[in-house]
Design a protein around this nucleic acid. Structure first.
Lengths: 155, 155
DNA sequence: CTGATAATGAAAATCATTTTCATTTTGTAC
DNA sequence: GTACAAAATGAAAATGATTTTCATTATCAG
């Protein structure tokens, strides 16, 4: 590995447990990345995660951040989005964050991204799954929705 | 410009008109790109558009295809998507294609992309716009929806 | 037809993400 | 603990889609 950095920020946060339960080998770097995701309410790009992570441990490399985020994503701990600016952003999954299912509202004028809860926020109501199944013989599992328009400041 | 290629494929298709009406200066290259989009039922990547366009006019460059697609997109003639494989794909807008509003179903196993009409296919019903406005003070204009799951062949 | 302006193509530049590979950790067996 | 095989890490190089640069060519008004 890199240089070796201590575990768990002092208090025994139990991140290792969280990762282990997801079938991820809990290394120091992964725990750091996960703890950053856990303590960030919004979405972050890989570069942003890197700079957060480096506040605790300067030795970490961008490659490892990418690999950790990808791993967390594949195991369902973080969501991964593309808001159209050519880079991926990540955020803690809705269950872990306690925010509940949500989608995103993107302002076409100022670029602000806000969470959409309620309305279309619920991911794919059962009635819709049935409709999609009936009309297209497709088993719908997850919906990713982006709604473009004007935010309260820009309209 | 490039080398100069004849107009309109023989019959006077009226592409120039279509582009002009959209405020786009109708050049030969743009008409070719637009005609390819018009005659393609599915979505195409820039490279795919290029190779289609080059069947009629080998001299066209990739840069011009990118610029034309971007222009058509900014003027609402084509939609632009990212299906998560790191490249953009384009398709004629729903009004011009006559397909009516639609979204996409993506199979997580084989990668197939199919159109979703009906159900969530309608882009943002009025009731939803109102809800989003009421709860978030956001003027919703367009929804982009991708639904992941298993297609009929893969489940 | 002529000139001013916009469009084009080729090549170089960007930029986010991935791959390669030598080195360091991890978890486990002793 | 100590030693080891397997997995993880970091730096640097590679990739690949998209953009930019710039000299050349087409377009359109007059």
């Amino acid at each position: 590995m890199g240089r070796g950095y201590g575990r768990g920020q002092g208090r025994g946060h139990g991140w290792g447990r969280q990762l282990e339960n997801s079938g991820i080998r809990p290394t120091a770097a992964r725990e750091l990345v996960f703890s950053v995701m856990e303590s960030t309410p919004e979405h972050l790009s890989a570069e942003e995660v890197l700079s957060e992570v480096r506040k605790a441990e300067p030795g970490i490399g961008l490659t490892t951040v990418y690999r950790s985020l990808e791993l967390l994503h594949r195991n369902g701990l973080v969501r991964k989005f593309d808001f159209g600016d050519g880079r991926a952003v990540f955020e803690l999954n809705d269950t872990l964050s306690g925010k509940g299912p949500h989608q995103h509202l993107l302002c076409r004028r100022c670029g602000r991204v806000q969470d959409l809860t309620g309305c279309l926020g619920e991911t794919l109501p059962g009635s819709m799954k049935e409709c999609i199944d009936r009309e297209h013989q497709f088993t719908a599992e997850e919906a990713v929705i982006r709604i473009y328009g004007l935010c309260s400041d820009c309209r």
